[in-house]
Design a protein around this nucleic acid. Structure first.
Length: 209
DNA sequence: GGGACGATCGAT
DNA sequence: TCGATCGTCCCC
């Protein structure tokens, strides 16, 4: 754990504000097999009981959603489609089950480790990894969880006091931030078109341009 | 106990 | 565009 992880008060910002402010921050995981990190370049906000796309829609409390009802600044990790994990940052005040899905990273540290975790191979002949290949590591929520070594084990971990943390990274201006509808929630009726997906404009690591 | 579905990914 | 694959949730 390093001393420059974001303080707990940082996570008390309103969810839609925090979702923007997390862009450019550095997500770090120190795992037994090594350290991996990356800049957050894409997020999505899920705003609790009134948001039809949220797992906490209608105030549902289940073993899975429970962590969202606790204090902000913890990890909400869920399993989806029988094979993928997704990482969220719990936000909102205690009792308000809100969260921010981390959808894409720009790899910084531990790229060879990420390549191994993703089941890809360092081509011994090529030697170099063009950005085209590099993108495949972390340009989607399931991919980045795999690359970062995140699974159900990290469920509930405190991002201010564990081996999974978020640190100040790049400085991002409002002009660099783009927004649009969230991905994969067509079923969510009136919540479907809310522009609660945020990304760093022109960053090649976002999941969709 | 049973069944339908999903905040995805990768191959076609 | 479609299949993989299984935990989660809701209903019976």
């Amino acid at each position: 754990m390093s001393s420059d992880s974001l303080p707990i008060v940082y996570y008390r910002q309103p969810t839609l504000v925090l979702a923007r402010n997390l862009l450019g921050k550095l997500l770090v995981h120190d795992a037994p097999d090594g350290r991996a990190s990356g800049y957050i370049v894409e997020t999505e906000a899920y705003i609790g009981p009134a948001d039809k796309a949220a797992h906490s829609y209608g105030g549902r409390i289940t073993p899975r959603t429970k962590v969202m009802y606790g204090p902000p600044g913890r990890a909400y990790v869920y399993f989806i489609y029988g094979m993928h994990y997704c990482l969220n940052v719990v936000s909102g005040t205690e009792g308000a089950p809100e969260a921010i899905l981390i959808r894409a990273l720009e790899p910084v540290n531990g790229i060879p480790l990420m390549i191994r975790r993703r089941g890809l191979s360092l081509d011994p002949d090529a030697g170099h990894w063009p950005i085209r290949r590099l993108k495949q590591l972390t340009n989607g929520p399931g991919k980045l969880a795999q690359a970062m070594g995140i699974s159900k084990q990290q469920y509930g971990w405190s991002l201010t006091d564990s081996l999974l943390q978020i640190c100040p990274g790049l400085s991002i201006t409002p002009e660099q931030i783009a927004s649009g509808p969230r991905i994969g929630i067509e079923y969510a009726e009136e919540a479907r078109d809310n522009p609660w997906r945020f990304w760093i404009r022109d960053n090649p690591f976002v999941s969709k341009s």
